[in-house]
Amino acid sequence: MTALLDIADLVVGHGPVTALHGVSLRVNSGEIVALVGANGAGKSTLLRALMGLVPVTSGEIMFDGTPLTGPAWSRARRGLGYCPEGRRVFPGLTVEENLNVAAAPGASLDTVYKLFPPLANRRDAPGWQLSGGEQQMLAVGRALMARPKLLLLDEPSLGLSPLLTDELLARLRAIASDGVAVLLAEQNAAAALEVADRAYVLHLGHTVDDGSAADPGLRQRVREGILSAKGLTSG
């Protein structure tokens, strides 16, 4: 299988702070890949670098066979759908306007409404009136309106109940089965590994682990890694 996204030795800094120290990562077509790691691991930085929202110091990003460069709008039009940390729905636009404003030729509102039925009932509500869960559905739906080849999801579980998180992540299966690859950045590693095909573990800007999401060994190491990062393991 050829890689849709192929990142090699990516180094990204925020001014003097280096957030990613040479990260390599692949996403194949139609695949869901989880990117897990604690606070400050560099997950958001990686997704923002892919969108061209933070400058890359060095490394190479290949997308769909050609280098990924240029301003954010051109990357979106090449097939990257971005759902940012904190949702960032347009507060003064209605649900339907939020979706339409991102629409690529051939995109359909019905597809999104079928995926997230609660949005259909709220189509005329302004973004600022939505609940956190509705905002998250809208942010994912909006990214899908660009008809992406690769959906970049940053921390969709943030602020959602466990139930709502599971429901939302379960939708990713439906999205992937439509041929859209997903790169899912999550602190909630357990939930992310549940839905992903493969996973990378990011720690302080380094990929420290990767493998099949179903691999019990990886799951075990992630669990222990998180516990030790939180200082919860005993001696």
Binding site: P71, A72, W73, A76, P84, F90, P91, L93, A102, A146
Partner: peptide, 11 residues
């Protein structure tokens, strides 16, 4: 309302 987000959506 959110310039960066707008650009990241292809605008």
């Amino acid at each position: 309302q959110d310039r960066e987000m707008a650009e990241a959506l292809g605008i």
